[in-house]
Design a protein around this nucleic acid. Structure first.
Lengths: 76, 76
DNA sequence: TTTAATTAACCCAAATTTGGGTTAAGGTTT
DNA sequence: AAACCTTAACCCAAATTTGGGTTAATTAAA
């Protein structure tokens, strides 16, 4: 099974990685949200690891950042 | 952007891959659900690509099937 | 064929995600 | 200092996921 603490670890690491890639591209949360066609709320909360993001949202973010979404899992 | 049709393709391919790996291990939807601590509903609907599964659910399924969850994205 | 096992397809309610808005807080620039 | 940009942190409502249940349909086994 997956403990709550392991779950939190995954979500925060995932968030850090999204932030890292976003900052590498020098784009704001707001612009990333707009490009990916998701809400600005979601970008901020995702980067802080605050909820269980869906796979489709990650694919959208990957496209907007011009990276394969698997990049988000690179250091998991 | 990600069209509805691209989104559906991703979800159905993902579902097929989960089913494929589940059948390789000879485990029923019910037993996989129990092992992964998710509902039987979710396994069936996920395999049919009927909704946007969360990343945590995929990690749980990976652990239950004893494969890295990235395996689910192998043919995407 | 009959029975059993598995999966699909529903219903409903609860929990969570998601979006849209505002305001506060933190930096940076001028 | 002020003005500005960016992010955090809320609120609320809508949409979706998730779980728990039942029943039908499909498939496999006896």
């Amino acid at each position: 099974m997956l403990t709550k603490s392991e779950e939190n670890k995954i979500l925060t690491e995932l968030g850090k990685r999204v932030r890292e890639l976003r900052e590498q591209k020098n784009v704001t949360q707001y612009n990333l949200a707009t490009d990916a066609e998701i809400s600005k709320n979601q970008v901020g909360r995702l980067e802080r690891g605050e909820y269980k993001v869906s796979i489709i949202t990650l694919v959208k973010l990957g496209k907007a950042l011009d990276v394969d979404f698997r990049e988000f899992f690179k250091y998991l």
